[in-house]
Amino acid sequence: MKKYLILYSPFLIFLGTFFGSYILLTFLYQSFLDGFDGNKVDSITHIVAQNTEKVLSWYDNSATIEESSKNPFFTLYLNQQAIARVVEGCNGISVIILFISFVVAFSGSIKNTLLFIFGGSLLIYILNVLRIVLLTVLIYHFPKQLHLLHGVLFPLIIYGVVFILWVIWVNKFSKYAK
């Protein structure tokens, strides 16, 4: 048994670091969310909705958001038509937590790790806002394609970008890079 622990120790360390980071960050984020009233939108989702409204207004100046008074979400309007809701799950933090956990598990130098985490998280945030904007516009024009757009295409794009960032990290900056 000791032989296998030694043989597979790099993999076991990776798993422990990944899941430890993921659990810790998820716990911290959940603690943050617990600080908000169940009927109010958290501040991160609020910022995402505001940024989405701003970018969407570049496409159509009739774009607005409205916070629900009874539930924790924003409604996105385009031409006075309710198109989409921005809920906590839309803010991209869960994707950023997954991204950070992987980078930490394959860490490199402290400087490279922190810079890559910051840059990658910022890129994911920006892409997430653009995702919501494009999703809103496409749902406005193609409402029957909601499931394909929201459930398939856009998750594929955002997770595809995260995967590409991971490949870049492992091959260029992590301690495992050649």
Rank of each mutant, 00 (worst) to 15 (best):
K2R: 13
Y4T: 06
Y4M: 10
L5P: 01
F14M: 15
F14E: 13
G16T: 04
T17W: 02
F19I: 14
G20V: 10
S21D: 09
S21P: 11
I23E: 07
L24F: 15
L24C: 14
T26Y: 11
Q30S: 13
S31N: 14
F32C: 09
F32E: 10
L33D: 05
D34I: 01
D34F: 06
N39V: 13
D42P: 01
N51R: 00
E53Q: 05
E53K: 04
E53A: 03
K54D: 02
K54Y: 07
S57P: 02
W58S: 05
N61Q: 04
A63P: 00
T64R: 09
I65E: 04
I65N: 00
E66P: 02
K70P: 00
F73L: 12
T75N: 12
Y77A: 05
Y77C: 04
N79G: 10
N79Q: 13
Q81G: 06
A82R: 05
R85H: 09
V86K: 01
E88K: 07
C90Y: 05
N91Y: 03
G92E: 07
I93P: 00
I93L: 07
V95K: 06
I96M: 11
I96D: 05
L98F: 15
F102S: 09
V103N: 09
S107Q: 14
K111H: 14
F116E: 13
I117C: 14
G119C: 13
G119N: 09
I124K: 03
L127H: 13
L127G: 13
N128C: 07
R131I: 00
V137R: 09
Q145P: 01
Q145F: 10
L146C: 07
L149F: 11
V152S: 06
G160Y: 02
W166S: 08
I168K: 12
W169I: 02
V170Y: 14
N171K: 15
K172A: 09
K172S: 13
S174V: 03
K175G: 11
